[in-house]
């Protein structure tokens, strides 16, 4: 943590703004996440979950993966949260507070979560203490750069389009076409499975 703070005070202009925004979104995300797992109102929990998911999408943007961010917004916030809200409506009469949303296992849960976090934090700080992310090279490619015809296709696409979306598309439809097809079959199976499980006899 100290090194993180030190990094902000480094005086690197480019990173100060980014870091301020990052900390803002990170804190909002964590607070919302805490609310998701502690609030007694299930609808509030769902709405806080929206904030968490949006915060994660922002993290994706920070990491230079706009496509993942867009998908996160569309699929998670657009579809999954709506699905969850449907679930809430179908399984509860009233939408007010529900005094008994938590079990008696709060202590156990907190203990396990803290232990887990302590362990992860230790190993992360121990392992990646000062490792910097590489600079986002896309920003450095000037639009006016003459296109080098000797470079291979991937590089060409990356330079000319300036986005990782094309690279993701290439990766999915070339190297990972089989997992992709497997996921499509999985979705179909889930579709049928959900219908079979949930339908009335």
């Amino acid at each position: 943590m100290i090194s993180l703070l030190a990094q902000i005070s480094n005086g690197d202009d480019l990173y100060v703004a980014q870091n301020i925004f990052w900390w803002f979104f990170a804190i909002v995300t964590v607070i919302a996440a805490v609310k998701v797992v502690t609030t007694d109102n299930i609808v509030h929990a769902a709405l806080h979950l929206v904030i968490v998911l949006a915060g994660v999408a922002v993290q994706f943007v920070f990491l230079g993966s706009e496509f993942a961010a867009a998908t996160q917004v569309l699929v998670y916030i657009g579809a999954i949260v709506v699905l969850l809200l449907f679930g809430i409506m179908l399984t509860r009469g009233s939408l007010g507070d529900d005094g008994l949303v938590d079990t008696e296992r709060r202590g156990l849960g907190a203990l396990v979560a803290l232990l887990l976090f302590g362990l992860m934090a230790f190993s992360l700080v121990d392992g990646f203490e000062d490792v910097l992310l590489p600079e986002d090279s896309r920003n450095l490619v000037e639009v006016t750069t003459p296109i080098d015809t000797d470079i291979d296709d991937d590089e060409f696409i990356r330079q000319t389009r300036g986005s990782d979306t094309a690279a993701i598309g290439d990766a999915i439809f070339e190297s990972y076409i089989v997992p992709f097809e497997a996921v499509s079959v999985l979705l179909l199976a889930a579709l049928i499975g959900a219908v079979v499980i949930a339908r009335k006899e």
Partner: peptide, 9 residues
């Protein structure tokens, strides 16, 4: 930016 800030979050 540090890799760790994302991992810790």
């Amino acid at each position: 930016m540090l890799l760790n800030q994302f991992l810790l979050l």
